[in-house]
Amino acid sequence: MLCYGLQEAGYYDTNLKPVLAELIGKVDTVKYLNELNYVAYEELCSVDSSCKKIAKIKIGYGDGFPKCNKGTYCLINKKEYKISQVTMDNTFVEIDDLVNVGDKVELYHRPNELKDKTGCSALELFISLSPLRVKRILKD
């Protein structure tokens, strides 16, 4: 965990900086649910009944973003939205009218809560990200 700059229970170092600052995607497509018969491979009953729109993000379990992220939340325009489905190449997010194509999506925006939400530690999730399919951007 320390190699990734993540704090563990019982250990805290104020000088420790996280290696993975963000996992970023972009909204690729936005659809109204009343125009769809299904989302990914599942019928619409898997989506919250109050949701009117769904966004597609181009990252999935083929990239190392596993299905256990279903039901967790991502951040778009400083607001949390529920991840409805994760497929091999795409993730579907329940959104509202504030989200548009091209908007930045922050996945894993709360790394310390990943274990509780997914059943996997942040370390397990971070090391599964494919170096072939997920572009790394190094910053100072």
Results as ranks from 00 to 15, higher is better:
residue 105 V to S: 03
residue 45 C to P: 01
residue 2 L to M: 10
residue 74 C to K: 03
residue 29 T to E: 14
residue 16 L to D: 02
residue 128 S to R: 15
residue 74 C to S: 06
residue 26 K to H: 12
residue 61 Y to N: 04
residue 82 K to E: 09
residue 100 N to R: 10
residue 28 D to P: 02
residue 27 V to T: 04
residue 91 T to A: 08
residue 31 K to A: 14
residue 42 E to Q: 13
residue 97 D to R: 11
residue 36 L to C: 00
residue 121 S to W: 03
residue 55 A to P: 01
residue 55 A to C: 08
residue 19 V to C: 10
residue 89 D to C: 05
residue 87 T to R: 05
residue 39 V to H: 06
residue 102 G to R: 06
residue 23 L to A: 03
residue 73 Y to C: 09
residue 74 C to N: 12
residue 56 K to I: 09
residue 93 V to T: 03
residue 32 Y to A: 10
residue 63 D to I: 00
residue 72 T to M: 04
residue 129 L to G: 00
residue 2 L to W: 11
residue 128 S to T: 13
residue 82 K to S: 07
residue 108 Y to K: 08
residue 46 S to T: 13
residue 113 E to V: 14
residue 42 E to G: 11
residue 47 V to K: 04
residue 72 T to N: 09
residue 18 P to N: 07
residue 84 S to L: 10
residue 27 V to N: 02
residue 44 L to Y: 07
residue 122 A to V: 09
residue 24 I to H: 04
residue 114 L to T: 02
residue 59 I to P: 00
residue 42 E to L: 13
residue 40 A to T: 02
residue 63 D to R: 00
residue 131 P to G: 01
residue 3 C to R: 11
residue 68 C to A: 13
residue 5 G to F: 03
residue 66 P to E: 02
residue 111 P to F: 05
residue 54 I to Q: 05
residue 118 T to D: 01
residue 34 N to R: 02
residue 3 C to Y: 10
residue 74 C to A: 14
residue 3 C to A: 13
residue 72 T to D: 05
residue 7 Q to D: 07
residue 140 D to P: 15
residue 12 Y to T: 06
residue 114 L to P: 09
residue 64 G to A: 05
residue 137 I to V: 14
residue 7 Q to G: 06
residue 123 L to W: 13
residue 112 N to L: 12
residue 3 C to H: 11
residue 45 C to A: 08
residue 55 A to S: 10
residue 125 L to R: 10
residue 14 T to E: 05
residue 115 K to C: 08
residue 122 A to E: 09
residue 28 D to A: 12
residue 78 K to M: 08
residue 134 V to G: 06
residue 99 V to N: 05
residue 123 L to T: 14
residue 43 E to I: 09
residue 2 L to T: 15
residue 73 Y to N: 15
residue 9 A to E: 13
residue 138 L to W: 04
residue 128 S to V: 04
residue 94 E to P: 02
residue 85 Q to H: 09
residue 73 Y to P: 00
residue 80 E to G: 02
residue 37 N to W: 00
residue 101 V to F: 04
residue 48 D to G: 01
residue 132 L to G: 04
residue 99 V to M: 08
residue 65 F to Y: 15
residue 54 I to V: 15
residue 52 K to S: 15
residue 101 V to I: 11
residue 75 L to H: 07
residue 64 G to V: 02
residue 58 K to M: 06
residue 72 T to P: 00
residue 135 K to C: 06
residue 89 D to L: 14
residue 54 I to S: 04
residue 51 C to N: 12
residue 89 D to Y: 06
residue 27 V to Y: 01
residue 47 V to H: 07
residue 117 K to V: 10
residue 120 C to F: 15
residue 87 T to W: 02
residue 60 G to L: 04
residue 108 Y to L: 11
residue 32 Y to K: 14
residue 125 L to F: 09
residue 40 A to E: 12
residue 59 I to K: 01
